[in-house]
């Protein structure tokens, strides 16, 4: 893990009317690491993703990507630079088969540039690349699953499809908004090695999670948000031991469980 921050978030503030969703939050993300962002409901986790990726406008603050200010750029420009995100509420292109879902991101300027698809623009090339990516992410190539309409896929596959949509762009940073939520234990167990492999491929990953136990297994560092403010930041073990974190999560059974087992 190199020590250059790939993404620097500098005192982001976001106010929805009178409500401070994010108050002066700053953190660095280093190249090749997995940073977890946790926090109770309504603590501003998804807002921070939206602010970094340009989906909503920040009230104030800056985001630097490899030292360059990207605060004012529109969402598609930021994605074009290599910061991709998944959505908490998965909305695939329902009417299309799973592999055709990937033809769309493969059509983007970044995918053309980074060679996300090979070939000379003849029809069908993006289809094969799409199926390749799906296989990488856990769709069995020879089964009917990649060819099924996205509307009929179960949640586990939809979450993978969201990740695959990011991978189609050959991203530098993936920001996963609750990749594990809504999945069964066994589905998560099969997702974890996938995340680890993405990290080994050199992709920096920011994970917003509610499933702490699984997150603490893969994350290098964890940041805790509470009521839009940064509570603390540190290695998983440090975070688990922290008293303030316990207080923020008071009442949440899973945390109690994780804390006692730690």
């Amino acid at each position: 893990m190199s020590k250059a921050p790939i993404l620097q978030v500098q005192s982001i503030t976001k106010a929805f009317g009178g409500i401070m969703a994010l108050n002066n939050v700053s953190f660095d993300v280093f190249e090749g690491e997995i940073l977890g962002i946790i926090g109770p409901n309504g603590s501003g986790k998804t807002t921070i993703v939206n602010c970094i990726t340009g989906f909503i406008k920040k009230t104030s603050g800056h985001v630097l990507f490899r030292g360059k200010d990207i605060s004012k750029k529109p969402a598609h420009k930021i994605a074009d630079m290599g910061i991709t995100r998944t959505f908490q509420i998965m909305r695939p292109y329902y009417s299309l088969p799973a592999y055709k879902n990937l033809v769309i991101p493969l059509f983007s300027p970044r995918a053309r540039r980074t060679g996300g698809w090979r070939g000379g623009g003849r029809l069908g090339d993006r289809n094969t690349v799409g199926i390749d990516i799906l296989e990488e992410i856990g769709f069995e190539r020879d089964s009917y699953v990649p060819y099924k309409a996205a509307a009929t896929l179960p949640t586990g596959y939809l979450k993978r499809l969201e990740l695959a949509r990011c991978l189609a762009l050959k991203p530098d940073v993936i920001i996963g908004d609750e990749i594990f939520s809504g999945l069964s234990m066994s589905e998560i167990a099969s997702m974890v090695p996938l995340i680890e492999r993405l990290q080994m491929d050199g992709i920096t990953i920011i994970m917003i999670e509610h499933r702490l136990r699984e997150l603490f297994r893969v994350a290098n560092r964890v940041m805790v948000l509470n009521f839009g403010e940064k509570l603390m930041e540190g290695r998983p073990a440090e975070v688990m031991a922290d008293k303030r974190v316990k207080e923020a999560y008071f009442g949440s059974q899973e945390v109690e469980e994780v804390m006692t087992h730690a």
Partner: peptide, 25 residues
């Protein structure tokens, strides 16, 4: 049914995902 047509259909189904894929809607 061409690739660009799929992008059009993507704009209809989920324009946020198109933006997240680095394309200007």
């Amino acid at each position: 049914n061409m690739d660009i047509g799929l992008v059009f259909r993507g704009v209809k189904d989920n324009d946020q995902a198109i933006r997240a894929s680095g394309m200007n809607i």
